[in-house]
């Protein structure tokens, strides 16, 4: 028997790699790690802005750096993480946001469809603005 005092201060010891033992925990940690790649890409984006502001030569040299195989590999990894972030965040929306229309709750499938439609719209607009216009 342990005393109530001991029970109060008992902390189950967690192994340092507790998250590696189960798939769902590992996905949780991967999702959390995606934020590091979000931050990394923000830095790349700001470097692009700076290079563009500095003139055509700086812009060309930025594009050359981005075309380096190591950068492409890094960006592919970053893309996988950013997509993991985007998909998990989008799928969370119907749970985080209850939409009501004329007093009735809009089904979460409809909310989710709206989220993906909005995402598609933003994506198409940015692609048009940057490379098609």
């Amino acid at each position: 028997m342990i005393s109530p005092l001991e029970a109060r201060y008992y902390r189950r010891r967690m192994p340092l790699l507790w998250w590696a033992h189960r798939r769902s925990y590992a996905i949780f940690v991967l999702r959390e790690l995606s934020s590091a790649f979000v931050a990394l890409f923000i830095v790349e984006l700001l470097l692009l802005v700076r290079a563009t502001a500095r003139g055509p030569a700086a812009y060309e040299s930025f594009l050359d750096t981005m075309a380096h195989p190591a950068m492409i590999v890094l960006n592919l990894i970053a893309l996988a993480f950013v997509l993991l972030h985007a998909i998990t965040f989008a799928n969370l929306t119907p749970r985080a946001m209850i939409v009501r229309l004329r007093g009735r709750r809009v089904p979460s499938r409809v909310v989710l469809a709206g989220v993906y439609a909005g995402w598609l719209l933003v994506t198409a607009f940015l692609a048009w603005l940057l490379v098609a216009a």
Partner: peptide, 25 residues
């Protein structure tokens, strides 16, 4: 905002333009 905006920018500037699939603006 990260979910909405970053994927398309990352695909363009990180992958599609460097690999020559899309012409750089």
């Amino acid at each position: 905002v990260a979910a909405l905006i970053l994927p398309v920018l990352l695909v363009l500037f990180g992958v599609a333009i460097p690999l020559g699939w899309v012409e750089a603006p």
